[in-house]
């Protein structure tokens, strides 16, 4: 395994930004057990770069440190060794310019749909009229009509809640979006619809995305590049470029694309070798 995996392959548009959006530079991280004081390594010597506007999925066996990687990029956690750079700056704390989509929709139940979507802008101190306009714009994009915008989250179905969460993720015009298994709680059909919806907005705004997932089909269907991690303490096992053309239809890929299935099989095999011994 080389020290530095270059994910940098010319993007679809052929534009190659001078500075990658995210650089993971020889990062290792260990957690200290608060009771025993024993250090438990989660990531070891991880290096890769993500060019701007690229959609990268990170897959790996559970416990390989995927979520830790996300926390390192967001600045919630500081690495034990190495450094993470976002837009050329070393990450030293939580950054406002990163969007985040957690595994649960995490909607605030006391806020209406609109106010949930506008929440990141409200935190940034944007004026009320302006932020609600932006929220409406995004709710339009995720297909939530004016009749559901003043509802409270409890009145929404799981799929609708997830759409609200997608709208919220894009409100702040973040150029980098971190996603932590955001679609894992959805049933199969809803999942495909919500994934396609996400892709359609992504195609329009083209932020850099780091998607953490254990679902290989999701990784291949959505991402430009799939980074496969070894079992914990995780490090980069393989980097696979998914050359599938965009815009994509997740449904068509799942059922009709032999290229898609080839990638799936390929990644599947790598992961099987990494499975913890039963």
């Amino acid at each position: 395994m080389s020290m530095k995996e270059a994910v940098a392959v010319p993007s679809q548009t052929g534009v190659r930004e001078s500075e990658p959006a995210v650089v993971i530079d020889r990062v290792s991280h260990s957690f200290k057990n608060s009771r025993t004081g024993v250090l438990k390594p989660a990531l070891r010597d991880v290096s890769f770069e993500i060019p701007s506007s690229r959609f990268v999925a990170v897959v790996g066996p559970s416990g390989c440190g995927k979520s830790t990687l996300l926390n390192l990029i967001s600045g919630l956690v500081a690495p034990t060794e190495g450094e993470v750079r976002v837009n050329g700056e070393v990450v030293s704390g939580v950054r406002r310019d990163i969007g985040y989509m957690p595994s649960s929709d995490s909607l605030l139940p006391w806020r209406t749909v609109r106010n949930n979507v506008a929440f990141p802008l409200e935190l940034a101190g944007m004026d009320k009229k302006e932020r609600l306009d932006r929220a409406d714009e995004l709710l339009e994009a995720v297909g939530l009509g004016t009749d559901s915008r003043d509802l409270y989250p409890h009145a929404l179905s799981q799929g609708m809640r997830q759409r609200v969460a997608i709208a919220r993720t894009f409100t702040a015009h973040s150029r980098i979006i971190l996603m932590d298994e955001p679609f894992s709680a959805l049933d199969a059909q809803t999942k495909i619809r919500v994934q396609e919806l996400f892709l359609s907005i992504w195609d329009r705004e083209k932020p850099t995305v780091v998607l953490i997932t254990h679902d290989v089909s999701e990784a291949v269907a959505l991402a430009d590049t799939v980074v496969v991690f070894t079992k914990g303490p995780g490090t980069v096992d393989r980097v696979i470029d998914v050359g599938l053309p965009r815009p994509r239809s997740v449904e068509e890929l799942l059922f009709d694309s032999s290229e898609f299935q080839g990638h799936m099989r390929d990644i599947w095999k790598s992961l099987r070798n990494e499975e913890p011994n039963e």
């Binding site: 919630l76 939580v94 950054r95 406002r96 649960s104 995490s106 929440f119 935190l123 940034a124 702040a172």
Partner: peptide, 11 residues
């Protein structure tokens, strides 16, 4: 999750 989300959005 709600606390983390708010924190990541710079609260």
């Amino acid at each position: 999750n709600q606390l983390t989300l708010a924190r990541l959005y710079g609260a």
